[in-house]
Structure formats: C-alpha cells, structure tokens
Amino acid sequence: MGACPQSTLVLNPDELGPDPVLGMDLAVKLGIKRLEIRSAEGVNAIRLPDDRLGRIRTLAEEHGLTVAALASPLWKWCQPEACPGRVDTFGFPTQVPAGERLGWVQRAIESAALLGAPVVRIFSHLRVEPHLTEQLLDDPLLPKALEMAHGAGVRLLLENEPVCTVASVEPLLEILARYHGQGLGLWLDVANLHEVGQATPEVIRTLAPYVGYVHVKDYRLTREGAREFCPAGSGCVPYGDVLPLLHAVYPMLPYALETHVRDKPAEALTAGAVFLRSTVPGGLA
C-alpha cells in the first residue's frame, strides 16, 4: 500500500521580524518546507517591487522552500471618509478609494505569480460607521477579482476576520455558497472563529468543504478578559476537536503557524509545530 497523503505545515517568516531569512532559517531547522508571505523588510508584500519579490522567491528556493500562500490585505479596507479602529494590515493602508482597489487586486495576483504562490488571502471590508460599512456579498469587484485570479491560475481564499464584515458562520456560508463555484474558498482562522463563539464541531463540519487553508494561532484570556497570544496548543482554542474534523474532509490541507507571540516568537513557532504534528492525524509534512 502507498503512503497516506499528508497535510503540510507552513511558516510565515515575518513572525520573526522584517528579515525573511530568519524565518526561512527557522523553517529549515523545523523541517518545514512551505512559506506564507505577508510582508518583508517591513513592507507589505503587494507593495514590494518585482525585483524584491523575485529575491524572496530566490531566497526561499535556496533554502529548499516554496511559497504556499500570499497573505494579502485585500478587502481589509474601508472608504477614505470612514474611521477604522486599530487594524493590523502589515504596512498596507486601511482607507482605500474605490478607484484604486482594482489596481491592488491586480497587484496581489501579480505578486502571487512572482512568488509562485497558488492562493491569495482576501478579507471582507472593515466594520466602520454603519452607514459607511461596505458588504462583500454584493461588491462588484469580487467577481472581477475571481475571474482575474482564475485566469492567472491563482485561487482567492476568504479569511473570517472579526474586524471585518464576514466573521461568523452565517455570512461565511452565504458568500461561499454564491461564489464557491467561481473559485472562492475559505482561509479558515480557527482562533478567529473561536473568538466569535463558533469553533464548534457542528460549525467546523459545515465549513470544512470550503476550506483551502488553515491559520493556526492560540490565545489565553487574562483576568481582565483580554487576549494573550501563546504557542498553538497551549491556549483556549479547541484545536484538539477541530483539526481531526478538518483532516477527515481534506487530508492534505496546509496548516500555517501565525503565532502573534511577540516575546520569543521562534520558541512559540517551534512549540506550535510540535503541537500540530502531534495533533493532525497522520502528521504534517
């Protein structure tokens, strides 16, 4: 009998800082072969010129690594007249005029091609003042973006993000049902789903057929009720229940470590890799 297919482990180099080589070195040390690119040298990846993106790909290849995904900031934006709260977009503006957005979509798809990334993350508009909050479901830019991505051999995956309009299962299912046939998939952040109280077996089973990529981070709640990020597997996110369910539907998913631990991130990523390899059935390549 042949070997069972394995899911894969992915590491984001910018968790260790602006120099991508540090994260690449850690990936090699941990036996991780795939990268997620979000920013480098302190600049959002889709704002980097072609030569610098090409250099990142070359560095990855020199380390024996490939790029699994471009974690773009597309749709994590609002109109210029809106007032977003504190939002982490890794060096990309949150207030983006409607006339500039198609250009950023094109740039993200170009950037993915330069990096060799098969998937690109998108969001669903920031939650701002109610009369200025936009909705992804009827955004005419989305079908254009899906068509462009398909033509480039790239797939767009929607992340469930609490600061954006699509974070819980009901709107996720509505938009995925409409656009899944055009190529849209789910970039599932389990911790974000847990934050909105929906990381349950029932919800995971419902969402699993749409999942193309999984973000893994963990946190504990402080006495004040704030989130304190910690290594995956050591917090309150129910990965022990969730990961086997996802694996049962898709045994070859990519699981990307997104620690957010600022103190000793390399140690947190190392611990997270050990946890995932012991928790995902069949292990991780």
Rank of each mutant, 00 (worst) to 15 (best):
L30K: 05
E62H: 13
W77G: 07
H194S: 08
G212S: 11
G153S: 09
F90C: 12
L172F: 09
P209F: 05
E195H: 15
G240N: 13
L142T: 00
R121M: 09
P97F: 07
L48D: 09
T200M: 13
E202Y: 03
L9I: 05
K144C: 05
L188K: 05
G272P: 09
F92G: 07
T222N: 01
G85Y: 11
L126A: 01
E61K: 11
P73Q: 06
K217L: 06
Y255F: 14
V67T: 12
L115Q: 03
L172N: 06
N12W: 01
L126E: 03
L146P: 04
Y179V: 00
L142S: 02
A152H: 03
Y219P: 01
G235N: 02
L243A: 02
D241A: 14
L65I: 01
S7R: 10
C236W: 00
S168L: 00
T94I: 07
S278L: 11
L257S: 10
L207S: 08
K33M: 03
K29V: 01
L132Q: 11
S39L: 03
V119Q: 13
P140Q: 11
A40L: 05
A27Q: 03
E224R: 13
S278F: 04
I32G: 05
E15V: 00
I46Y: 06
F229K: 06
P162N: 01
A27T: 00
D14A: 12
L142N: 00
L9F: 03
P244M: 08
D218K: 10
G185D: 07
K76A: 07
A45N: 04
E195S: 15
M24L: 10
A177K: 13
T259C: 15
A268V: 10
R38V: 06
P244A: 08
N192M: 03
G116F: 05
D189M: 03
M148S: 08
H215Y: 12
P162R: 02
